[in-house]
Design a protein around this nucleic acid. Structure first.
Lengths: 130, 130
DNA sequence: GTCGATGCAAACAGTTTGCAACCAC
DNA sequence: GTGGTTGCAAACTGTTTGCATCGAC
């Protein structure tokens, strides 16, 4: 039975307002700066707990850091994210699934899971900056 | 100008014979066991250098470890790998690319890169073991 | 009051780096 | 001989854990 503590509420609150994926360390730093003191270990433990039960998505940064984002959607979907500003857009993965099914069958694989990482430059970031 | 040293040759040799992705630490351990002494730091440095220039693929394990595999193919393709034995199968990604293009355009993204992770259970691993 | 959650510090795992010795070209 | 490469040890980063204290229910 999980408890709702000040710290967990603040983590969720912070993640709710973000379109980006954040690392445990970033979350810790942001909360601390906003006068919401929390121990780094608590952030790690909370993220772990919340990833299991409640709507948190995890992904890995290119150098192996775990990044978290609030994402309640439970159906198959993926993210398209901007290399420049980090904004993440949810995209449905339907045609993808057909392709995966086909592949899996062709190679005799079962219980196939799909993880797609799409990153590019979003329209606002690709504008000439002035 | 990169040099061909005993250590680098042995790393490539080891990777050539593997269908699986291996971590730096695994490579170090395997080489050491086979009486091919090498420093762990050298493995890391070599993998970094070889990923840049020559045919090495990198991917991240679920807990953020870097895994390497020899993979000369330079055209767009992805891997379908077995959760049980770790065997990786190369698969072409053509229909995928169309879907990605479509998405990118719809959301105003440019220069989109695609990373797909497909994992399941391969036919030999899904047989009842006896 | 109970049991999960927190804080702190110490411990870990994976990876990187400074530097002198080394060796491929 | 020159400059990239190695080995070793020390440093770093991200993450986990033990334990006493705290607080949500």
């Amino acid at each position: 039975v999980q408890r709702v503590t000040r710290q967990r509420a603040e983590i969720l609150e912070l993640l709710k307002d973000s379109t980006q994926f954040l690392s445990a360390q970033q979350i810790h730093q942001l909360l601390t700066e906003q006068d919401h003191p929390i121990a780094l270990a608590t952030v790690y433990r909370a993220l772990q707990a919340l990833t299991g039960t409640g709507g948190l998505d995890v992904r890995l940064s290119p150098d192996g850091e775990h990044l978290y984002r609030r994402c309640a959607r439970s159906d198959a979907h993926h993210h398209l994210l901007c290399r420049s500003c980090g904004t993440a857009v949810d995209v449905p993965g339907l045609p993808l699934e057909q392709w995966v099914d086909h592949l899996a069958r062709a190679h005799g694989f079962t219980q196939v899971r799909t993880t797609v990482e799409l990153d590019g430059v979003c329209s606002s970031c690709s504008l000439p900056d002035r």
